[in-house]
Simulated scan of single mutants.
Amino acid sequence: MRKALIVWGGWEGHQPKQVAELFCMTLEQEGFEVEVSDTLDAFADREKLLGLDLIIPNWTMGEIAKPLADNVSAAVQAGVGLAGCHGGMCDAFRTNVDWQFMTGGNWVAHPGNNGVSYRVHIVPGSSSIVDGIDDFDVVSEQYYMHVDPAVEVLATTRFPVAPGPHSLNKPIDMPVVWTKRWGVGRVFYNSLGHQANIIEMPVVTELMRRGFLWAAEGKRLVAEQSANGGAVGAAGAYTGMGDSQV
């Protein structure tokens, strides 16, 4: 049975407990054995993390000890999937740039705050994760992010919508959904999900479900490739997070 770990906490305004419960329900419906924790100490056992298929951080504006972040990085580099949404993953630990490097981006602003009406544009043909999903509208925070240029962009939103000091810049398409690799692990992120009601939108629920499955599938593919004699090592693996090279 595939195993997943959801770790929630941090700023209560993002309803981390409620969102974690929704994610748990989605994964259990897909046959995962799910552990849900409200402490970052859940990242303390590196060997346990290496035995998972998927890690879902759902923790906003916190601080993480370097050894704990190193453990997550080591697990993902070895093939464990990493997936999450909104501030729970890419505004989790603002002072940890290594975490931001691993996840693919970090939050910097949401002009207009909550309640902005905007469109999410699917990038056609970008991934099976978005196959058959049409552009859709959402009323929520519109995340402006600093994004790793290495990510594969699956959906975008156009800025500016809400007024602000950014408004006189040229219009830009900001990534909303993306994937990337960290070592041989798969990383999935969706900037939607300010509160549980956004996660409950059918299209967002489906995006998260597909993203979870895609990220977790990487562990099996790595194992199969290794069993067949393929090269699965993370050549040139990033070692900025301590002794996490695998």
Score class of each variant (00 low, 15 high):
residue 146 H to E: 14
residue 126 S to G: 13
residue 155 A to Q: 10
residue 138 V to R: 02
residue 129 I to F: 14
residue 133 I to R: 07
residue 156 T to A: 05
residue 150 A to Y: 10
residue 128 S to W: 14
residue 147 V to F: 00
residue 133 I to N: 06
residue 140 S to E: 13
residue 125 G to Y: 05
residue 154 L to K: 13
residue 148 D to N: 15
residue 143 Y to F: 12
residue 137 D to S: 05
residue 161 V to C: 00
residue 136 F to G: 00
residue 160 P to S: 01
residue 126 S to A: 15
residue 132 G to E: 13
residue 141 E to C: 06
residue 156 T to G: 08
residue 137 D to M: 04
residue 137 D to R: 07
residue 156 T to L: 06
residue 141 E to I: 01
residue 161 V to K: 00
residue 131 D to R: 15
residue 131 D to A: 15
residue 135 D to E: 11
residue 161 V to T: 01
residue 145 M to L: 14
residue 151 V to G: 08
residue 153 V to D: 07
residue 149 P to Q: 05
residue 133 I to P: 05
residue 158 R to F: 04
residue 132 G to A: 11
residue 157 T to K: 03
residue 144 Y to V: 10
residue 131 D to E: 15
residue 135 D to P: 13
residue 141 E to N: 07
residue 140 S to T: 07
residue 151 V to Y: 03
residue 157 T to L: 06
residue 152 E to H: 13
residue 138 V to I: 14
residue 137 D to W: 02
residue 133 I to E: 05
residue 154 L to S: 11
residue 161 V to L: 01
residue 126 S to P: 08
residue 148 D to K: 09
residue 127 S to N: 12
residue 130 V to M: 14
residue 132 G to P: 15
residue 158 R to L: 12
residue 132 G to W: 09
residue 142 Q to I: 03
residue 147 V to C: 08
residue 153 V to T: 11
residue 149 P to K: 03
residue 156 T to R: 12
residue 136 F to I: 04
residue 142 Q to D: 02
residue 144 Y to S: 09
residue 127 S to L: 10
residue 154 L to E: 11
residue 125 G to L: 03
residue 128 S to C: 10
residue 161 V to G: 00
residue 161 V to Y: 01
residue 154 L to Y: 10
residue 138 V to E: 01
residue 153 V to Y: 01
residue 135 D to K: 12
residue 143 Y to A: 08
residue 125 G to D: 00
residue 160 P to E: 03
residue 155 A to M: 10
residue 160 P to V: 01
residue 147 V to Q: 02
residue 150 A to D: 15
residue 134 D to F: 06
residue 158 R to D: 07
residue 153 V to L: 07
residue 149 P to A: 06
residue 161 V to Q: 00
residue 125 G to M: 03
residue 131 D to M: 10
residue 142 Q to F: 01
residue 147 V to D: 01
residue 142 Q to Y: 04
residue 134 D to V: 05
residue 130 V to A: 13
residue 158 R to A: 09
residue 154 L to I: 02
residue 126 S to K: 11
residue 147 V to K: 01
residue 127 S to R: 12
residue 139 V to W: 00
residue 141 E to W: 06
residue 135 D to R: 12
residue 138 V to P: 03
residue 161 V to S: 00
residue 153 V to H: 04
residue 126 S to I: 03
residue 160 P to L: 01
residue 152 E to C: 13
residue 141 E to H: 08
residue 129 I to H: 14
residue 130 V to H: 15
residue 151 V to A: 08
residue 144 Y to G: 07
residue 131 D to N: 15
residue 148 D to Y: 06
residue 148 D to Q: 12
